[in-house]
Nucleic acid binder design. Structure first.
Lengths: 343, 343
DNA sequence: CTACTCTGGGAAAGAGTTTTCCCAGCGGTG
DNA sequence: CACCGCTGGGAAAACTCTTTCCCAGAGTAG
């Protein structure tokens, strides 16, 4: 009998006004309501403990106060950092954040977006590297378009390969700058933990690093580039493979910090010390990892800020032009895990 | 003109059946629909690209497919680990996860829960230590009760101080076991980074540690217990304070891992080495921190699993009895950051 | 004093589903 | 063959809001 909630109709009745008036008071429409009635309604609403039914509002307005965030894995500090930024922005605007995790599966990605579409979410931020699969991109582009037709907006934190606003880390130039820094430090022979072959982020960082080496007249031996998972364990395992096969490199570049962490762990387990036996550099500058020993030389990305900016793009509902791309530069953080090679 | 979506009515019309029949086909009600019509409807739905309007469904059913998760700070690995567990469970059941972050503010906490109530969420998992404020608990209990009256369920990951199912780490016995382990290692004088005074988790760990020391006939000097923020920086700053005042302890227990991380960083910055000059132990066993040097002696909690179990409790919608409490034991992980004291 | 405009109130029509209720038709039973 | 129960289909009510539309009354200009 007690449904546990109060409807606007009950508030209106209690205040002795019409449903329309009550609605106008509670949400503040364009229409004025007299001071007298306004106060009556507010008093009744408060007294009865009125809480608007969000789905009824969504249905009536055909737009909700939901905002979506899609990540690969929320336990990965890279994503949880971005999530913190998006969260902050959403919360400031009184929006409710829906979190979807894809576990790196494109099907999951589209599934989540269509769920958000079904909920009439206002905007979606999709974080995480695009793959090199054109087909996946095409399917996703279709979802995004459907979402846009409904009046929603999408922003990405990744590569600008889709028809949506994008906050895009400049992986190439960051990796290139890092390469130059390491060359300046005296390194000539490098090994790279290049991550998965089909991940654009990984590839761009590899490319940037590689081309800076070429520009400096240095070669990157084929056997010094190993691919593996984009995770800590992927880094560990890739490093083991690299070292087992043998390498002449004096510096190891892992295309992200969590892989670099795995690399350092693997090297330690093999009795090598960093940076004496081998320098190690990463990419991202994950805050949780800043207390690693040795401290990691890396390229800092302002992840939380990137999340916030993506949220801002996605929620900028007036904008109706071409997709915008905000490029974010990384800054070199030179720390203890790299040093001039001996000899 | 093109609203960007197709309604069930359009599907029904396209298939030449009534709205009722179409609804019965799409969601599979108790009522049967003949094979012939069923196929027609399915074909039409697929052809038109029908996607049900989630808010209309929620309104009609008075129950949504949303599940809430409330954490203090998603960038904190403790919470992102729990979040991963909750996410996995929710996704398995096809539920959509709503993430709320409180920034440790009780007002935010109730605000988020009432938002979830407004959305007719099925269940909520609230993670994070309760404070010692009875008043806050009372207000939260009221929200939880309102949510329950509406047919929702709540589960907590923390202390069982509220009328809801709880997954509760046994902080006291974990800390006590750790204390005994460290005493066995030869330590007699301890310092403790005890975190905030009003956080139950912090207090329980302090208590457990303390009482194990008492049981072993050891005293804990008052000046060796310092309070501070429950974060990495809190640990750093607390350690500085402790060391500046001077301590005779041979072992430092930080009541969580992120504080222990700050402690180790502070000690390193002061030129002290761990564990030679001072042993350091933590609590939680955050996976992201397992590559710290020295590796951290700590009490492992199965965080992801705890998240999953809390989600399971919250979504066990048949259950209508007394609040259940699942106690989770920690296991001692003895690693390199603690060693027998010299002398 | 009429006519017109503005203001604020309420009735009612949506919004897209689910579900209840009614009914036609059919097969089985006595 | 009358009656009953069952099956499956559709009409319409219900869910809770927002917003359009209509109207009464007040104010103003001519």
């Amino acid at each position: 009998m007690d449904p546990g909630y109060v409807t606007l109709e009950q508030v209106a009745e209690h205040a002795g006004v019409s449903l329309a008036t009550a609605s106008r008071v509670i949400n503040g429409s364009t229409r004025q309501v007299s001071q007298r009635l306004r106060e009556k309604v507010e008093a009744s609403a408060h007294q009865l403990g009125y809480l608007a039914n969000a789905s009824a509002q969504t249905l009536a307005r055909n737009s909700s106060s939901l905002m979506g965030l899609v990540v690969h894995d929320i336990a990965d500090p890279y994503f949880s950092q971005i999530a913190a930024g998006v969260t902050r922005y959403a919360e400031e605007l009184g929006l409710v954040l829906v979190l979807g995790t894809t576990n790196r599966s494109p099907q999951e990605e589209t599934r989540i977006i269509s769920a958000l579409r079904a909920h009439r979410a206002k905007a979606i931020v999709i974080a995480g590297s695009r793959t090199t699969s054109e087909e996946t991109d095409a399917r996703l582009a279709k979802e995004i378009e459907a979402f846009a037709r409904q009046g929603g907006r999408v922003a990405l934190v990744s590569q600008a390969t889709l028809p949506a606003d994008t906050v895009s880390p400049d992986n190439r130039s960051g990796a290139a700058a890092l390469a130059r820094h390491l060359v300046d430090q005296g390194h000539r022979r490098f090994a790279i933990l290049a991550g998965p072959t089909n991940l654009r982020t990984a590839r761009e960082r590899l490319d940037g690093f590689h081309s800076a080496l070429s520009a400096a007249g240095l070669e990157l031996a084929h056997h010094n580039v190993v691919h593996g998972d984009f995770t800590r364990d992927g880094g560990y395992e890739s490093t083991q493979r690299l070292m087992t096969l043998g390498t002449d490199a004096t510096c190891l570049f892992a295309v992200n910090d969590v892989m670099a962490t795995g690399a350092i762990a693997a090297l330690r387990d093999m009795g090598k010390s960093v940076p004496e036996d081998l320098s190690v550099a990463g990419f991202d500058d994950i805050p949780t990892l800043r207390d690693l020993t040795p401290t990691l030389t890396t390229v800092r990305l302002p992840l939380e800020e990137m999340g916030e900016r993506a949220a801002a793009l996605a929620l900028d509902s007036e904008y109706r032009g071409e997709p915008r791309v905000i490029s974010v530069e990384g800054t070199i953080m030179s720390r203890a895990s790299t040093a001039s090679p001996k000899g």
